[in-house]
Design a protein around this nucleic acid. Structure first.
Lengths: 189, 189
DNA sequence: GCCGTTTGTCCAAACATTAGACACACTTGT
DNA sequence: ACAAGTGTGTCTAATGTTTGGACAAACGGC
């Protein structure tokens, strides 16, 4: 089984059961919590591959503030564990804020079991990807160079490396001419 | 004026006018298009600091497919220009998909002028940030090391560098002990 | 055409990375 | 408790990279 432990946090026991049934068989282990109070402790103990977090706890308060707070708290402490949010209140603003706060995905109730499984798997797969250091470097260098309209001196300065080093790096990877965003010096109009 | 040109694309001329009035004075120049057909050409000419893109063109088709297509097309060609989406149909799935497809933000109609301005400014500010190369490197190294539970040999392998180099890098930046996600070797229980 | 900036190129010194080696610590299976 | 397997911390010597400084040539604005 490729996909490890998953932690599900929801204040509704019925939903917890339903999710557990849906996810058991796909994930090695499904741990549930009815409140996020002990989330950090449980995460430390179980080291889940992903977390499925409901956004509204404390009955009656449905603004999602609770869930957002926990999302931030968990994400700050465990930035490498993908957190998928789930909520009954399909609020676009909330969803956008959640994704910008580090959520891996956002699902609304009622959910589709297959979709939920796909979303969680995707989140885990994406979190597991590791980019080699020099690839990361090359990509970033090209992005900054692009932003500087090809001005190597400025780009080198922003990158915190010397002009010659940038020059050498660019020469070393002549790949991806990377069009767009203002012509590189010497390009005709 | 710190914030440059902005390109607004919406098939509704009235909305285009309203947005233009709202944004003029805040941005140096507001360029409008009633159809995204010429978006790529216009972007090449105007080099906007951000793009505000409506999600439903071709009257009657409100699924947002049109807008999503254009989002992808523009983002692929100009990955450094932030694209803010705007739509009348507050669909969470659509918003999530848009953000995962590279949108900088997602706003629903009717919009709040101040919020729209804030969102666009934020998007531009964020796109303008440049991370120094060694900071990017250090962050990535620590993330991967963390994922490997502190196993330097494995981490070095994934990063594509030698074990000793990783060892030196870690020694060089003893910052951010970075707890969580499984104990590093030697940590007590 | 002049002036400030940027490029392409070179140098030599300082620094980083590499494979290989080795003793030691730790985990695991028996 | 032992041996096998793996990972660490440390070292070396060769190789490769980054650095500031320097300079002629090219470019852009005025």
């Amino acid at each position: 089984m490729k996909y490890g432990t998953i932690l599900v946090i929801d204040d509704n026991a019925a939903i917890l059961t339903a999710v557990k049934i849906c996810l058991t068989g796909v994930f090695e282990r499904v741990v549930t919590l009815t409140s996020p109070d002990k989330a950090l402790v449980t995460i430390a103990q179980e080291n889940p591959a992903a977390i499925l977090l409901d956004m509204n706890f404390s009955l009656g308060v449905n603004s999602g503030q609770e869930g957002m707070m926990w999302l931030s708290a968990i994400h700050r402490k465990y930035p490498d564990i993908p957190i998928v949010l789930i909520t009954a209140y399909a609020d676009v603003k909330l969803a956008v804020r959640a994704l910008k706060n580090g959520a891996a995905d956002f699902v609304t109730k009622p959910w589709d079991n297959d979709e939920l499984i796909r979303v969680l798997k995707d989140a885990i797969d994406k979190a597991g990807e590791v980019i080699p250091l020099d690839q990361l470097e090359t990509e970033h260098v090209r992005k900054v160079l692009n932003k500087c309209d090809g001005n190597m001196k400025k780009a080198a300065d922003l990158l915190g490396i010397s002009r010659q080093t940038l020059y050498n790096k660019v020469k070393a990877s002549p790949l991806t001419p990377l069009r767009g965003e203002g012509k590189l010096r010497g390009e005709g109009e």
